[in-house]
Amino acid sequence: MKPILHAKNISKTYGKKGTAAYTAVRDLSFSMNEGEFIGIMGPSGSGKTTLLNMVATLDPVTEGDITIDGVSVSAMTEDQLSDFRAERLGFIFQDFNLLESMTVFENIALPLSLRNAEVEEIQDRVLQVSGIIGIGELLENYPAELSGGQKQRAAIARALIHEPALLLADEPTGALDSRNAETLLDTLAELNAVRNVSILMVTHDPRSASYCSRVLFIKDGKLDRELVPSGTREAFHQEILTVLGDLDRRSGAGGRA
């Protein structure tokens, strides 16, 4: 198995050290192999979004090192990071982050445009990816004319078009109703299973997490435990709920030091 992501003893501290500093992530390490579909769960304030932002190179680590697809991102300049994101990473956000002033086609094509690909290649790829995602008929529309589910599909198409090494999703179902959320998760799972797309997804929704091949639980900025499915998705869902309940109980009992 080829490792795609390796986080080694990473920490993130906000504010100046010493003066009312707040440590969101402390000394956390984990690895991810190519083709994995990892979910990150944890209570509010546990540091899961901070972790995702660091992996996404949007937020620098205070300590430690992150390696993605064999490249260490910790020492890169701002421009190098921009290029790295554009080439190796794909993003799906809770609020879609589609650009309203561009058509769906242009939105999806953006990552390829950024690397100045040929028009023919762009057109072929957009048609191909939008076909897979099922929004082939909406390409000439503007995001404002789309439903929430359609917008998120467009966002997935944009995240996949340049075949990134890693797809990062931040609460992708957060703004969707349960039916659209299910369709979306099916799509992600299928992309993962059939096309071997590596996905790292932050979610607070146990149903969403049950689609993953591994779930990491974060608590107080530290990796608390991890879970892999052993049986059906429904069984995995139950297991996740149990772990979450356990985490909650421990915080309720004053587990926070």
Partner: peptide, 15 residues
């Protein structure tokens, strides 16, 4: 603001 922030996240250089 949000649009430019989205572009930044998607890896568009500041320049």
């Amino acid at each position: 603001i949000r649009r430019y922030d989205s572009l930044r996240k998607l890896g568009v250089r500041r320049k």
